[in-house]
Design a protein around this nucleic acid. Structure first.
Lengths: 340, 340
DNA sequence: CTGTTAGCGCCTTCAA
DNA sequence: TTGAAGGCGCTAACAG
């Protein structure tokens, strides 16, 4: 029972064939005559043989393992993307190695190193902003990788993602279209986070194009957290002239903002409009339902997996895929009320 | 630039030492004389050497890799536990292999097999209910593993978790204490899910001990989803005699239930009380804030990691750790109002 | 402390 | 189609 784990050689002996045949059976069964195949199958079952991945990896130089290095799992939208990514990998018999770096790009490199040592065959990255060291590592190993959650228009970086700037701009433009002028922005911490940075830029662009400006007191950076969203809204509401609309960097912040309004009795969207970003499942059920941008996280994860899988099997596939991020106009936005 | 990845042998040559010394430097640096150490360090830096995990694993029989097989990442509470688990592993230089089986125990075995092939040194499991095949595999490999999210009082299974039955019972008892009798239960799908099963049992026990019964029409099983929670509450509210309190199997269901009440104008807790399970971050910010059971997911993940790490380094450590799941009485519960 | 060397378990030519 | 045999890159005795 507690004997050593059986090896391929044990299986070969048990089945009365060579190790090469067993190996072939494992990797290209169709090259093995049915009769032998059965004997091998029987031997494997009898011994409870499980292939030894490390040995296989060493000999074949592939681990059938793919890494993902993400900012955090604590944001439901990433969790969903990773979930889909893993699911797709699994159906091709690949296993996911996961690491999260908590938005610290130096830490990210360390994780990448760890994954490279583990021999991942490919890598998923979030965002297009990474340290040069990280790219050096990847290039030296000639490792296939893909950027997600962002889109590089230059085409220099392989990605399956979306244009954060454009998406944010869309939300801002919409608010301007329906008459808002006093628009505030509560965005995630932009340092080391190109998604947040781009979203902020998008809002700024939209405002500027319409001759509006983003007042310094209407610009807040907050960690992605409900409490932070509340605190941001509190800061905005207690100003002499509160904004009539608040664009939030993601749904978690927006949720916090909305809850803060509700707990202070500030009517939404009557007194103030709110937009989010991500379209978390719960946002459509809120009262009022949240106007937000739909991020196709599941599809992104799946397609990122497909891209990497394709690269690994030399199947041609475009190096970048841009996904649509649609604006979902729901209940938290309305034209500004005339005040004073 | 695009030359083959350098091997330990290359490093040895470059540094003018033996491969053994380089290997020692990598694994037990203190056994290498400082002078040599520097030469090796220089060589490693010069070549951009990255150890080859598979080779290392093959030779040492350890991968410094630990697997986690979870139901889904789509539930924030699991995401948080995994996050903490991974974080703790990383600080000991272990990497996480992650797989999710979507509550399908047969699929779970397949994932476990995949992880075993990848050579994980240890494994984290969710819940105490698994197929016999799964345990066979684990035992044959003599692999350290730990159960989480549940607690096995028999002591037969190593776990770092909590007593789902007791926790649910606590919520039910509380509702009874404050006067509820018409209590409904909206629990997760119990098939293949011992946490959900135990929670349901806990509620039943509490009711029975107080001479109350769980009416069939007050018992609903729903997938963990906001929409399902809403639908459950809808079903309950439209009955001839709606319950005065609804115990939900987790916070997502509870959130759905709460939102459904709000959208129908049913006052909570005035007309109906609601309890959740998990204590997701957002629940404390809801209006009213959700009465729920606090599941210490982060701590559980961290301690599960510590348990496995300890087992791998032969550090003594108790095989089971029971965590406290406290009832947080907040705004969604109150004594029943006298009706009719 | 350091070098030598025999594997670790499997894949993959190369012949048969 | 099948078997024999040489590595893959590293670790871990063992000897020095």
């Amino acid at each position: 029972m507690t004997a050593k784990a059986p090896t391929l050689e044990d299986v070969a002996r048990e089945a009365g064939v060579s190790t090469a045949s067993v190996s072939r059976y494992l990797n290209m069964p169709e090259l093995v005559r049915p009769q032998r195949r059965e004997k091998i199958e029987a031997a494997i079952a009898a011994l409870g043989y499980v292939p030894h991945g490390a040995a296989r990896a060493l000999a074949s130089q592939r681990t059938r393992t793919i890494g993902a290095v993400i900012p955090t799992l604590d944001n439901a939208i990433f969790a969903r993307g990773v979930q889909a990514f893993q699911h797709r990998l699994h159906s091709d018999n690949f296993t996911l190695l996961l690491a999260s770096f908590d938005y610290d790009l130096e830490e990210e490199v360390r994780h990448v190193d760890a994954l490279l040592t583990r021999g991942v065959d490919a890598l998923l990255l979030v965002g297009c902003l990474h340290t040069p060291k990280l790219y050096e590592r990847l290039d030296k190993m000639e490792l296939p990788y893909v950027h997600t959650w962002a889109f590089d228009r230059s085409g220099a970086k392989p990605c399956v993602g979306f244009d954060n700037r454009l998406a944010a701009k869309r939300a801002a433009s919409y608010l301007i279209d329906i008459g808002h002028q006093a628009i505030a922005l509560v965005v995630g911490i932009t340092e080391g986070n190109d998604r947040a940075t781009e979203r902020a830029l998008g809002v700024r662009e939209a405002l500027e194009e319409r001759g509006l400006a983003l007042l310094p007191e209407y610009y807040l950076e907050k960690a992605y957290d409900v409490a932070e969203g509340r605190s941001a809204m509190r800061q905005l509401l207690t100003q002499d002239v509160p904004p009539t609309a608040v664009i939030c960097g993601n749904d978690v912040l927006a949720l916090g903002a909305l809850l803060e309004c509700q707990s202070r009795g500030v009517p939404v969207p009557g007194e103030i409009s709110i937009t989010g970003f991500d379209d978390l499942p719960l946002t459509s059920h809120l009262q009022p339902s949240l106007t937000t941008l739909h991020v196709p996280a599941g599809e992104m994860g799946r397609r990122a997996a497909e891209y990497l899988l394709a690269r690994l099997s030399d199947v041609p596939m475009p190096d970048s895929t841009e996904l649509e991020v649609g604006l979902l106009v729901r209940g938290t936005t309305a034209p500004p009320s005339r005040r004073k």
